[in-house]
Amino acid sequence: MVLTHTPVCDFGIPAPDFNLPGVDGRNWSLQNCRGPRGLLVMFICNHCPYVKAINHKLVRDTRDLIALGIGCVAIMPNDTDAYPDDDFEHMREEARRHEYPFPYLLDESQQVARAYGAVCTPDFFGYDAQLGLQYRGRLDESGARPDAGEVRRELYLAMKQVAETGHGPKHQIPSMGCSIKWRQE
């Protein structure tokens, strides 16, 4: 496990398109996932301790964001040959276990993760209604500690602001997590 931090938000950069298979049996595109007030694209996986620690908060926050008109989608970018716990069947089990309220998609080619510039799991990209980037920060300060207690809901509050104003907060703290497991070329 290599700890990685995300870069600073590049405000306004457009969301790259995608068309990926979901654990629900259908393919999902950028247009299918967006909400009327924006879109949250999350790069997560099954085995990462940082993702495991926040899964319950991810479900809570995305449910609340969906109610505000923010579409939410999670994409699994890791090399599943090297990390079989992240394969499609395990993704399906993970989505069912946590009752993900968002599509959970497999980026087998890793082209979508590269197009977004994703570097770790979890990695969050928050877009406005026109699909311009407004947030590239963390979920909250808990990191890999599932028992961190009540902490400020940074991702939720940032995306709530995007839903209400179209703009993300100027101050954003980078997400941190395990590096994406890229295929060896």
Rank of each mutant, 00 (worst) to 15 (best):
S179W: 00
N19P: 03
H5C: 09
G38H: 07
N19S: 14
P146R: 07
G137I: 14
P103R: 10
P169D: 06
L30F: 05
I173Q: 13
V8H: 11
Q172L: 08
P103A: 15
Y104T: 06
E89S: 12
I13T: 13
V41P: 03
T165A: 09
I13W: 04
L139W: 04
D17Q: 11
A15L: 01
A144N: 08
A129F: 01
G22W: 13
N19H: 12
M91Y: 15
D107K: 12
S175P: 03
H56L: 09
R138I: 04
M159P: 01
R152Y: 15
C9F: 05
G117D: 01
G35H: 04
F18W: 10
Q110P: 13
P146M: 05
A82K: 13
V8K: 15
G12Q: 04
I70W: 00
K52E: 11
E94V: 02
G22M: 13
F43I: 01
D64E: 12
V2E: 02
A113E: 03
G22C: 13
P14L: 05
Q130W: 00
G117Q: 02
P77W: 02
P77A: 11
N46E: 06
R152F: 14
P101D: 04
Y83L: 13
F18I: 11
I70M: 05
M91E: 15
P21Q: 15
T62R: 00
R37Q: 10
F88V: 10
D87K: 05
K170R: 15
H56M: 02
